[in-house]
């Protein structure tokens, strides 16, 4: 998974408002958690489960989209077909794995879509339009900023470990994790401290309204998606 999509040089067919993306993520997360793959409630669930697939395709993330569809169909297939035909430990494993997958993977994919297609400044602007308090907006933005940093730091530490001949083998799992986590934590804390200092000297803590270069507006497509997903949500509650 690359976060290069943070930059704007990727071509997306549609630009959704971050608020739409957030709403969809929340709804997909909730709806997929409950209900069953049989009966009438399966219809709104299926509809929302396909949302990440369509959105990823629209962002030209074909590989991720198709992979998601494959995993989803596979786990639905297992849940509806294999689970009733197996017994014992195998059945237990299949039940746990397939139901975990059908319930969590759609929400995770929506999260990935949200994070990889939204710029931090867009997200801040959208959250402020939703009148979220600063105490929520800033930590949220910092978290987004930290995903790629953590990946970068993690890669650097893992290479340093390889250089030192520290490998994962048999009994030393806890030692391996310790070696990996200590420099990671030290570095992210240091970066976090320097980052806060830099942001504060650039006026981040200023009370009062912020402006934004990003043109955040709910458009026709947003309205359509919001209506469909809310209808599906309502249907799921009623059924």
């Amino acid at each position: 998974m690359g976060f290069a999509a943070f930059s704007s040089n990727h071509q997306s067919l549609y630009r959704l408002d971050p608020r739409t993306k957030i709403l969809l993520t929340v709804l997909v997360g909730i709806v997929m958690m409950g209900g069953s793959i049989h009966g009438p409630s399966a219809i709104p669930r299926a509809l929302l489960a396909l949302a990440p697939f369509g959105l990823l395709l629209a962002e030209r993330k074909y590989r991720q989209g198709l992979l998601y569809l494959f995993v989803l169909l596979l786990s639905v297939g297992v849940e509806s077909y294999l689970v009733t035909r197996t017994q014992g430990a195998l059945n237990l494993i299949l039940v746990i794995v397939s139901s975990l997958f059908t319930r969590f993977v759609p929400g995770l994919m929506m999260g990935y879509y949200l994070v990889s297609t939204t710029r931090i400044s867009e997200l801040i602007a959208a959250l402020e339009k939703m009148h979220m308090p600063r105490q929520i907006v800033i930590p949220f933005a910092v978290m987004m900023r930290f995903f790629p940093t953590v990946i970068e730091e993690n890669n650097a530490v893992r290479e340093a470990m390889r250089m030192r001949g520290l490998r994962l083998s048999g009994g030393n799992v806890s030692a391996y994790l310790e070696y990996m986590l200590i420099p990671m934590m030290m570095c992210t804390v240091k970066i976090g401290e320097e980052l806060s200092a830099a942001a504060l000297t650039r006026g981040l803590g200023r009370p009062g309204a912020r402006t934004s270069l990003c043109d955040i507006k709910l458009r026709g497509l947003d309205a359509l998606l919001i209506t469909i997903s809310l209808l599906a949500f309502a249907l799921w509650i009623v059924l």
Partner: peptide, 11 residues
């Protein structure tokens, strides 16, 4: 590495 808050340059 630690003095930019956004992930794209223009922002």
């Amino acid at each position: 590495r630690s003095q930019f808050f956004n992930v794209d340059t223009t922002s």
